[in-house]
Design a protein around this nucleic acid. Structure first.
Lengths: 159, 159
DNA sequence: TGACAAAGTTAGGTGGGGCTAACTATAGTA
DNA sequence: TACTATAGTTAGCCCCACCTAACTTTGTCA
């Protein structure tokens, strides 16, 4: 089925869509090579993924040609990217996590969380921002709170 | 290596450890059958996973016998369960997500987030609780905030 | 234009994680 | 004690996602 009903995608395929989406130039085009570099996989792995995405009606490309997303693919990619951004800003702006760490965590978690929780997370980020407007700096307060307690405890962990 | 250095485990193996940990009776024992039921996999898949966990020094068991965790396995399982609980209470107590949904999301996300973020999340839950003690019901306020905005927008999503 | 580098593809292999079907132990009961 | 149901194992298969090595195509430039 080329234009299939929205089937559940693996985390890996979502990553490919997101990468293509982010790499797209003005014409919405990318090259296989750049996808490989971005995701840190072999070029041949990209070929395989692109064939899969094409068979699912999410990407257009032909052998030795450049890659674009179908409108369906773009919609999915946008949603993944959106989750990524929401998670990142929650981690950074609310929890006070370092940007790098936040980005990496967002990459992992974006595939695990459904729209309901992501939606609430977005609301929450906005809520904290809104309270900030009213002069109540929740994020800052929390940082103090966390700083005090994590100074006390040792932070060793098995994982 | 039987008592290897703490290697990174797959999400799947973490799930097995967690299940064994949760199923353990007074003697810390479980049966393969119950693991299969809990995780919704075939009994033969459990056998395979147990062999792997044993080879990594995380579980004790012998053919046709009952299953226990080694102290190392227990430590890892406890950490996974801890992540699960922290995530669940963040989703429920802060974001106001329904318990069922929260549990399922926690199962997925517990493998994706590292100790740093989990630690901050725990702090955050505690912070919200502490503010609650001081008569400032952040969670309740947020729920109102979220309710207002999600009443306005349509909530369709591609994923 | 022809030669060469870079990009892309194919073939074939690995490992993880799951499945079914068929077999073997174990345990409970007539 | 023998029979049978249940639990556990093994063998063999599949799919996903990655890899390397070898090949083909494309594009650049002397």
């Amino acid at each position: 089925m080329a234009t299939g009903t929205t089937q559940k995608l693996s985390a890996s395929l979502e990553d490919y869509l997101e990468a293509i989406f982010n790499l797209a130039d003005d014409e919405g085009q990318t090259r296989s090579k750049d996808i490989a570099t971005t995701l840190g996989v072999a070029r041949s792995s990209v070929t395989g993924a692109l064939q899969l995405l094409r068979s699912k009606g999410l990407a257009n490309y032909e052998r030795y040609g450049s890659v674009t997303l179908t409108s369906q693919g773009r919609a999915v990619a946008r949603e993944v990217a959106r989750k990524h951004d929401i998670l990142t800003s929650f981690f950074v702006d609310v929890l006070g996590v370092e940007k790098e760490v936040a980005q990496r965590a967002a990459c992992q978690a974006e595939h695990a969380l459904g729209s309901e929780i992501i939606g609430r997370l977005l609301s929450f980020v906005d809520y904290v921002a809104a309270r900030g407007q009213d002069g109540c700096d929740l994020a800052g307060e929390f940082r103090l709170f966390h700083g005090r307690r994590s100074a006390t405890k040792t932070k060793g962990s098995v994982l």
